[in-house]
């Protein structure tokens, strides 16, 4: 999405990215970024919390309007729900499951090869 924002912006359409993967977006470099510090999946606010979603949307419009230079980053003033362990959960590797992960990887590579062959019309 960061590359898409850059392309739109370079062609005259101002953008805001609203997202939770801060390191990836900052690494790429985008015109405007509203950071929501939540688990990946709900960049626009907690599920079921329309008030928060509206406030985040409003912050995005404020940033779209007010930024005066590229790479502006704003952090939305909201925390994730009462779930202190969420930061340690996504993408963590359980040492007990290493062998299973390796098997899943083999399976995935086979599927990728098959999909690649299909795309090449082989």
């Amino acid at each position: 999405m960061s590359l898409v924002a850059r392309h739109l912006e370079a062609n005259g359409i101002p953008t805001v990215i609203v997202g939770s993967a801060m390191d990836i977006v900052i690494h790429c470099g985008v015109p405007r970024f509203l950071f929501t510090d939540f688990p990946l999946g709900n960049p626009a606010g907690h599920p079921g919390n329309a008030t928060m979603q509206s406030e985040i949307m409003r912050l995005a419009f404020d940033l779209l309007d007010s930024a005066d230079a590229p790479r502006r980053v704003v952090t939305a003033p909201f925390r994730w729900r009462d779930d202190p362990e969420w930061r340690n959960r996504y993408g963590q590797i359980d040492p007990v499951k290493i062998a299973k992960l390796r098997e899943a990887g083999e399976e995935r590579r086979k599927k990728q090869e098959a999909a690649k062959a299909l795309k090449l019309g082989a």
Binding site: G41, N42, A44, A50, Q53, M57, R89, Y90
Partner: peptide, 20 residues
């Protein structure tokens, strides 16, 4: 790729807030 253990995407407004 999103955190399927910590949350869900059953509320579209949580990732595409059209109504908001």
């Amino acid at each position: 790729a999103w955190d399927k253990e910590s949350t869900h995407t059953n509320d579209r407004e949580s990732f595409l807030p059209i109504a908001a």
